[in-house]
Design a protein around this nucleic acid. Structure first.
Length: 417
RNA sequence: GGUGAGAUGGGUGAGUUGGUUUAAACCAUCGGUUUGCUAAACCGACGUACGGUUGAAAAGCCGUACCGAGGGUUCGAAUCCCUCUCUCACCGCCA
């Protein structure tokens, strides 16, 4: 969320930046609401002052006046609350602004490829998709998953289930031991304001799985997290952190739940796009000035996993039109999928500046006072897609799959499945 | 699910016969004095949000709100009443 004062001061700048992000947003309406709100507020506060003085004086002669004032204040207050609510609603659906080195464009076509790493393997046999590899090995079962839960779910079995677990443990170990992330095991069900804090709400309600806790009323709403970013980032909400305790780095492996509304017909086959999938998530809490540096570091952490697994990938810098709501700058890491013969997103590393911390009221103490924190998140990595990439890239002619050396200790020393 | 206790500033914690109490005290933090250095001691500062205003800015001044959240009583609420949320203790049930 942005500071309304900044928008007031730099209207033209915001207008330009918002236009670049390719979203429809009526900034003028926001400013009009702001103006009305302030007028009402001023009038209200003037009356409140009067009333306060009367009660302080304890002069019974004026008690009736005070009563009258109360009525007027209530009237004004109702009006102002309504305006403020509209204002907040609008303001909270305004996306973050991009940093200046982000390419301007209206969609993913304007993304910039930053680098390509690793050698794409050439196969001297007809390669299989992960769907066929999974079926042949009895490791991936879509039929039973459909019966259990419907479309876009999967059941992993045997060594494929083991492989999923191995990947998770391998990644967690790497990020904790090597990169200093603190491992967290968080809840995957969260309150409404937690989703608001990271920017999933109010704008993207239709993408979220909402839980009905109380059948009698719809108060106390809960949501399944679409990513561990939500919980990990909110770990610092409503707090003032000591500067010496920064940066904070959290890692967690959690299931992620997404409705995938609006992606009908997209990636319907296979386990590329699921309603539920595991993801290892990296979150950093830093001083705002360190955001860009930390983003590079985080990108490196995500890349390192692919390097260790010897999987070819490319890194792209997302354009203004392709970035997520809360991000000011985003790198996507895309792994090579040999059967589809294309790169597929497997990680998205974003700096959010103070956009989320303002929503969460997450601050740190400086010599001057308290200031908003910078927040960053990135996948390190999406487990489902990583599993696909791994088995497709490491397949043999007979449909067996070689297990990379770094995973062997997590796979009970199996070298091939 | 039942009963009881509680929720106050960065932290600990006073204040609940309603009236300069944004709120004592202590700790932490910052500035200063003292000091060979550190420590200690002493002095001082020290909430947030929003609005207004002065200023080029840094910063200052004024106002309003906020003592878990929301509502109510009252001229006036941290303090009284209601609802909700959460925490703690005990009981019941349970992975």
């Amino acid at each position: 969320m942005h500071n309304i004062k900044d928008i007031r001061k730099n209207f033209e700048y915001f207008l330009k930046k918002i236009t670049e992000r390719n979203v429809k947003f009526n900034l003028k309406e926001l400013m009009d609401l702001d103006k009305t709100n302030r007028e009402l507020l001023q009038n209200k506060e003037k009356l409140e002052q009067e009333k306060k003085n009367i009660s302080k004086s304890k002069d019974e002669k004026n008690f009736q006046t005070s009563k009258d004032l109360s009525a007027q204040i209530n009237l004004l207050s109702d009006k102002q609350t309504l305006i403020k609510k509209k204002l907040d609603q609008l303001l909270s659906s305004l996306p973050n602004l991009s940093l200046d080195d982000v390419p301007v464009g209206k969609d993913e076509k304007s993304n910039k490829i930053v680098k390509k790493i690793g050698k794409i393997r050439s196969f001297d046999f007809n390669i299989k998709s992960h769907i066929d590899l999974g079926k042949k090995n009895g490791g991936i079962d879509f039929e039973i998953a459909t019966k259990l839960s419907g479309a876009r779910f999967v059941v992993l079995k045997n060594n494929f289930a083991l492989l999923e677990r191995a990947l998770i443990n391998f990644m967690l170990d790497t990020h904790t031991n090597r990169f200093g992330y603190e491992e967290i095991s968080p809840p995957v069900i969260v309150n409404e304001e937690i989703m608001f804090g990271t920017g999933q709400l109010p704008k993207f309600l239709e993408d979220q799985f909402e839980l009905k806790i109380d059948n009698k009323n719809d108060k106390n709403k809960k949501f399944l997290i679409p990513t561990a970013e939500v919980v990990l980032t909110n770990l610092v909400r409503d707090s003032v952190i000591n500067k010496d305790d920064l940066p904070k780095r959290f890692v967690a492996s959690t299931p992620c739940f997404r409705k995938e509304a609006g992606s009908y017909g997209k990636d319907t086959r296979g386990m590329i796009r699921q309603h539920q999938f595991f993801k290892v998530e990296l979150v950093s809490i830093v001083e705002p000035n360190d955001c860009e540096k930390e983003l590079e570091r985080k990108l490196n952490c995500a890349e390192e996993i692919l390097k260790l697994l010897d999987l070819p990938y490319q890194v792209t810098l997302l354009s203004t039109g392709d970035m997520g709501f809360s991000a000011e700058k985003t790198y996507d890491v895309e792994v090579w999928m040999p059967f589809e013969k294309k790169y597929r997103e497997i990680s998205s590393c974003s700096s959010c500046g103070t956009f989320q911390s303002r929503r969460m009221s997450a601050k740190y103490k400086t010599q001057k006072g308290v200031e908003l924190l910078g927040t960053l998140n990135g996948s390190g990595l999406a487990v489902g897609r990583l599993l696909i990439a791994l088995i497709e890239n490491n397949q043999n002619d007979d449909g067996s799959i070689n297990i990379p050396d770094v995973l062997k200790k997590y796979m009970n020393n199996i070298t091939k499945i």
